[in-house]
Design a protein around this nucleic acid. Structure first.
Lengths: 136, 136
DNA sequence: GTTCCTATCTATAAACC
DNA sequence: TGGTTTATAGATAGGAA
């Protein structure tokens, strides 16, 4: 039985995406910790996810703030010195986001449809379902 | 022959430490990129090392600054936590990416200008500066 | 959704140029 | 000091309970 070789693309299935997020976030944090310990360096990671109101960080808020303060002090000239070709990178992200959006709109449309049908069947409106609560 | 199970502690040997740093930094950046792509999340990583004058970051300086700004606004964000649904979330990302792109194009243009002027003054070319480094 | 499992895939410590 | 190779430790996708 051959396991499908996960391709690097947005995971459309909500539960699968969340499961993957949790596993990989854990693995990532561990990696940052290892790198920092093994090589004695200063580093931080900040992750914003739809699953947590607060960003998840390494090593902790204070550590992150310290690194960020350092980062802000960096002269701008130096920052752009090692300019990589960010243009194409960002373009890629836009394309990716657009694809996601298209699919999301479709999903939302289907959800609305379900909602309308539900209202017809029950004869009442359930506004809580329209709560823009987001995706969790 | 069993391989020694690397223990999580500062590597005393200088060259070994640097070698490990380079390998693990690369692996880490890849992981952050994968997590971001697979789960469509906003994240950044900043690494200060004695091997580089500037911190090495993911995804790029602009991305880091954006996350930084977000991070500083955290207290307020707490209240309006889950007010965005996936659709507007993605739309936001597209808008942000577009802004980034516009800014990047402008920056690159200025970079080219500076480079050309430099060539005129010194009469030589330094192709190394055009290396589109990036993270594979 | 969560925890556990494990076949597979990936990262990387060492060794060697 | 910086690439390549290779064997093994470690990460994790998918499935089951």
């Amino acid at each position: 039985m051959t396991r499908k070789k996960v391709k690097l693309a947005f995971i459309m299935n909500d539960s699968a995406r969340k499961a993957t997020y949790k596993k990989r976030k854990k693995g990532l944090m561990k990696k940052v910790n290892e790198l920092s310990t093994l090589c004695g360096i200063d580093a931080c990671a900040i992750i914003y996810s739809p699953y947590e109101a607060q960003p998840e960080v390494w090593p902790n808020n204070i550590g992150v703030q310290r690194v960020l303060a350092q980062f802000k002090r960096m002269p701008e000239m130096e920052q752009s010195k090692k300019m990589v070709n960010q243009e194409s990178f960002i373009k890629q992200r836009i394309t990716k986001a657009n694809d996601q959006l298209k699919k999301q709109i479709k999903e939302n449309r289907e959800k609305e449809m379900t909602e309308v049908m539900y209202q017809c069947l029950t004869g009442k409106r359930d506004h809580s379902k329209l709560d823009p609560a987001g995706f969790e």
